[in-house]
Design a protein around this nucleic acid. Structure first.
Length: 111
DNA sequence: TCTGTGACCGCGG
DNA sequence: ACCGCGGCCACAG
């Protein structure tokens, strides 16, 4: 941004999505829909996707713990981003089976 | 403005 | 288990 702007000012409220996402523990995953609900926007799963897409490449947020409700990785199949997500999840002890998360208990509990 | 396009979801059929 | 459909939200043309 331009230096005339008093950097990091709260003229734009923090995205609640990031707050929630930051609290997903290692070895657990959450779905786009659940994340939307927890962020105060039930039904807006697509919005979550667009927010994640906008994350900087070097973000500290655990974006890889967000998966589709079907248990599959939503990033384009074969892309390196998708491979990276799967690798990270497996490193956290999450098992895959035919391109989808194997066990339901890995998922973030329902409300 | 309107339309199309996604890191989506639930409900039916 | 797979599909189509309407609903959802932001963004590019």
């Amino acid at each position: 941004m331009h230096p005339s702007q008093p950097s990091g000012l709260a003229d734009t409220p923090p995205n609640p999505l990031y707050t929630v996402l930051a609290q997903i523990p290692v070895g657990r995953v959450i779905t786009y829909g659940q994340l939307a609900t927890l962020a105060g926007r039930p039904g807006a799963a697509r919005w979550v996707g667009s927010q994640l897409r906008a994350l900087p490449n070097d973000t500290q947020l655990p974006w890889h713990r967000v998966v589709a409700a079907s248990g599959k990785i939503s990033l384009p199949a074969g892309s390196d981003a998708a491979g990276k997500q799967r690798t990270r999840l497996e490193a956290e002890g999450i098992a895959f089976r035919n391109e989808r998360i194997a066990l339901a208990q890995y998922r973030w509990p329902r409300e």
